[in-house]
Amino acid sequence: MDQTASINQGNPARPDSGSSGAIFASGLIKQYKNANSPALNDFSLDVQPGEFYGLLGPNGAGKTTAISILTGLFPPDSGTARIMGMVFRESENKIKQILGLVPQNIGLYDKLTARENLTFFGKICGIQGKKLAERIEQGLEFARLADHARQPVATFSTGMKRRLNLAVGLINDPQVLILDEPCVGIDAQSRNLIHEQLTAINQRGTTILYTTHYMEEAQELCSRIGIIDNGRLVEEGTPAALLQQSGRANLEELFLHLTGKELRDS
C-alpha cells in the first residue's frame, strides 16, 4: 500500500462536496442531550474506494458517534455523510445493501450456533438459497470456525466470537466495511488472523474504515490514518508521512502528542 502520501493538518479532510469518496463526511456536528460539548464538531472525512483507513482517537473523541452517523444509525445535527456517493435520507436501503458494520460490542446471538448466526444475518440482508449457503461456508472458513459451526456462540472464546463477529459483518460481501475496534480483548493468534483476512479483503477492493486503540495495528494495516479528538479530525496522512513530518519515533508518541496525556475518563 502507498504510505507515502501527504500529511494534512487542522481539519485536514474537508473535501469538496463533489468528492468521489467511498466514505465521505463533511462538517458533521452532533450534540447529545445533557452533554457539555458536541460529540462531533465539524468532523470531516474522505475515504477513497479501496482504501484501508484507520481512525484513531482517545476515549470519548467521537469515533463511535462518527461511525454511527456513517452507518446511518442516527443522523447528524448538521453536515453531510455519504457512502459511495449516496446519502442515507435518500438511499438508506441501497447503502445498507453495500455496507458492512462490525460493532465494537459483539453482535451475535449467544444461544445460536455460528452457522445459525450467519444464516440469520444473511437472510436479513436478503441473501437466499445457494448464494446464502456459499456465503455461510465462506464466513465459517474466514473465521476458521468450520469445525465449530454447530456449537452455540456462548461456548466460544473471545477470539472465536470476534472472528465470527467479523465474518457476520462480511456476510453481505460489502463494498464498504466499517469496523469499530474489532480486535479488543483477543489473543495474538486471533488478532493476526483478523489482520490477514482484513488485508486480503481490502486487496480485493473493499473499502475499510477501521477504528482502534492499538497504534501498531493501525500502522501495520492502514494505508491512511486520521486522528480524531474532541469531535474533529486533528491529523491525517499515511503512517510514514505522519511520523516523518512530526519527527516522532512511533505512532503512539505522535498520538499522545496530538491528544495529550490527560486521562479521558469522562
Binding site: L73, N105, G107, I124
Partner: peptide
Amino acid sequence: RNSGIWVRLMALPV
C-alpha cells in the same frame, strides 16, 4: 440493545 446485535441489525437493510 445492550450487545452489538441491535446496532448491527439497524445497519442492515431491515
